[in-house]
């Protein structure tokens, strides 16, 4: 009983983590299912056929590739724009800072359904064609704010003396940016870009309003939910999940090992 009281927070914490992963486990398990009817909801019979033939259902892999394409394009542009804004906010004094902050903040405080529907209202009024470019434009718009926040945090965390030291050591403003500021902020920018890509790739609501007849991966799943989602979709989602998780864990592990090596080196010297 005392053990329980002492560890109660830890137990709840682990249970919450488990809770976060239960639906993902369900998705992974169902990717090995041979569903009885058209709905892949209850486990029927073990099968690897979806995995062996992951593009076997028409449209699945096409929509997947389309989502990656839009994600990459939107991420690159939004990362450039967002990084520029973050630099302006952290490094410069200018009039209109408060309005700028507000304009960055508002898209994050607006429900996606409003973002998506308002853009649709604009596109309908100016008869801009829905589809690839409409969706890419929308994604850049809603990712930019997240990029600004992430890069800004990184910039603010940087010791201003590093740039002063660079100027003190004969580096012009341009050289200081190139040799000190940029290399130090780059990990933050890459992290922000990764976040942006994940947001774009998985976005459904904004996309759904502006896609017209175009089918991204989430739009495909939405449409399929009515008539039964193919097992291949479960397999693809499981694959993406585990690949991303392994990638992040490997990066984490490398960082942790490097940190331990550094500590050992300092201790021994």
């Amino acid at each position: 009983m005392r053990w329980l009281r002492r560890n109660i927070i830890g137990i709840i914490a682990v249970l919450v983590l488990v809770y976060l992963f239960v639906p993902i486990a369900v998705v992974a398990v169902l990717s090995f299912n041979q569903p009885e009817g058209k709905y892949n909801v209850t486990f029927n019979e073990f099968s690897v056929s979806a995995w062996q033939n992951i593009c076997g259902v028409p449209g699945v892999c096409e929509s997947f590739a389309l989502s990656i394409q839009i994600g990459l394009l939107a991420t690159v542009i939004a990362t450039i724009f967002g990084t520029m804004i973050a630099f302006a906010l952290v490094r410069y004094r200018f009039r209109g800072r408060d309005s700028t902050n507000l304009l960055i903040f508002l898209p994050m405080a607006t429900p996606e359904v409003v973002l998506g529907s308002s853009l649709l209202a604009l596109f309908l009024n100016i008869t801009f064609p829905l589809g690839f470019w409409a969706v890419t434009i929308a994604h850049i718009m809603f990712i930019v704010s997240f990029i600004v926040v992430a890069v800004k945090a990184r910039l603010q965390g940087m010791d201003p003396r590093l740039e002063e030291a660079s100027r003190d050591l004969y580096a012009s403003p341009r050289a200081t940016f190139r040799y000190v500021t940029f290399p130090l902020v780059l990990p933050g920018i890459l992290g922000a870009a990764l976040l942006g890509f994940a947001l774009s790739f998985d976005d459904f609501i904004i996309t759904f309003f502006n896609a017209g007849t175009m089918v991204t991966f989430p739009v495909y799943i939405w449409g399929a939910a009515q008539r039964g989602i193919p097992v291949q979709v479960y397999a693809l989602a499981t694959l993406v999940f585990f690949l991303s998780l392994v990638l992040v864990l490997v990066v984490q592990g490398v960082n942790a090992r490097r940190r331990r090596r550094l500590e050992a080196a300092v201790a021994s010297s």
């Binding site: 003396r161 590093l162 002063e164 030291a165 290399p183 130090l184």
Partner: peptide, 12 residues
Amino acid sequence: NTVFQSYALFPH
């Protein structure tokens, strides 16, 4: 040239 407080060595 300056020796900065807490050094400001370039970490990268």
